[in-house]
Amino acid sequence: MNVEKIRIRRECCRLLEKTRMQKSLTKQCDEQLLLDGCQKVMESEAASQFQYLEADVQKRLIETPELLEYVLGLLQIGSSPARVGTLLGQTEAEELLLYNKERVADILMDQGVAGEHLLVYLKYYQDLELSLEQKSLLRNGLHNYFSLQKTCGESLLAENREIFYSKVVAGKMLNALSDYDGCLSDIVHSHEIFEALDEILRIGGNRQRIDDENFRQIKEQPGTIKDFLQWADRFFTDEEKPSFMEFLLSNHSLVYDLRRLKDKVANGMDKEAHRMTGNRASYIAFFYNNEFIEEWKGERMEELMIYAITHKKKAFLSLLKEKKELFFRYLFTPSCFKESFMTG
């Protein structure tokens, strides 16, 4: 009978009981390592917190004495066991030990840093003093990126970390694109593309989404679009800007619409330009050189007018202007939707 081995085992059991550590460790760890680890935990001011670490985390720490000492230091500073366990699940001991313990503790105690991105934050953002708003944007930006990217991994983060706490990436603007990876790659290689997207967001009240066709056009002429948008930003009122941007993006003719808008305003149509932000039918009418009639408002009416304008139903539009009262008397009767009625 090995008396020393029995003594160590009994001492381990006593210390496990006292520290409330997982008793299963006696079957999983080398007993001498376990005894040494338990003694370190007992001597630490963080002993009461150690028990809240998951069993697999406790086992890993017991088997890696240097990491155990490091983690006890984090707990002693004030890091929560749950956050410590999350970070340990994202990194190897050798990597974590390279980081300054106090800085790691600061990040762990900062609830503005999402648990799922603790290691990413530690790798790429630990040296930055971000504001609360920037941290919130970064949280969303990293969530978007790792949810939507397919092939980039962390490759874009190392040299382009700032874009991930920009509103362009942190919002939902790019979330509907079919090639999210390609879009981000284009953005980091062209500051003009980023600036054009940023203008769209700013003018639209930070709630716009773009689709593949929007991005294709922006990618082709980012500088031109940015310059026109800056002009439009000065022209429209704050109340008009969100609807203007919504209609502009939905019409999928960015450069054409913006250039025509500026030309028309230069030719004295500034009142009409302000008025056309009221609804999509008035927007379409403005660019197709059709007069907008106030009674056109309403979803079904707007759809009908947009169809007539974009398909150049001249006879129908002339009838509407000349016989407005008659038209509205029979509006949405079955005959109104016969093909012959709108042929022109």
Rank of each mutant, 00 (worst) to 15 (best):
C12V: 12
E159Y: 10
E129F: 09
W296K: 06
G171E: 01
F244V: 07
Y121S: 03
D106L: 03
S282R: 14
S147G: 00
L317M: 12
A55G: 03
Y121K: 04
M245L: 13
A308W: 01
L148E: 04
K23C: 07
V255S: 13
G115I: 05
D198L: 02
G268S: 01
R216Q: 11
I203T: 03
S190E: 01
Y288G: 04
V265N: 09
K219F: 07
A170T: 04
L254R: 06
Q49F: 13
L98N: 09
P334D: 10
E11T: 13
E133C: 09
Y330K: 09
F341H: 01
E129K: 15
E63M: 12
T64Y: 00
L248Q: 02
Q39W: 02
M269G: 00
V188F: 00
E95R: 10
S136R: 14
F332Q: 12
D127Q: 12
K59R: 15
A281D: 00
F332R: 12
R209N: 11
L25T: 06
L16F: 00
Q208V: 08
I218M: 12
F328M: 11
Q49H: 10
C336Y: 07
A158C: 01
C152H: 07
S253R: 15
F328Q: 05
D181N: 07
R209E: 13
S48L: 09
R161G: 03
S340V: 11
S340D: 10
E116Q: 09
E302N: 11
L97M: 15
Y99M: 08
E295R: 15
A196D: 06
N144P: 05
L67N: 02
L177N: 10
I306R: 00
P334A: 06
G141W: 00
N267D: 15
H252W: 07
E303Y: 04
E339F: 04
D56G: 02
E43D: 14
L331Q: 12
I77D: 09
I193Y: 01
D198S: 14
G78P: 12
I77R: 12
G112R: 09
S282N: 09
S44Y: 03
Y124W: 11
F215S: 06
G344L: 07
H252I: 10
E199T: 11
E199R: 13
L96Q: 05
L138R: 08
L319C: 10
H143D: 13
W296I: 10
E294W: 03
G223I: 09
L157H: 12
K314I: 14
G205K: 06
R9V: 13
Y124L: 02
P65H: 06
K313N: 05
D212M: 03
I218D: 05
Y283W: 14
D186I: 00
F327M: 15
M276F: 09
C12K: 08
R259F: 08
E240L: 07
A281V: 04
E322F: 04
D179M: 07
E162P: 03
M173C: 14
L53N: 02
L16M: 05
L229F: 06
H311P: 04
I306Q: 01
L331E: 13
G73P: 01
K123L: 15
F228L: 10
E94S: 12
T26I: 15
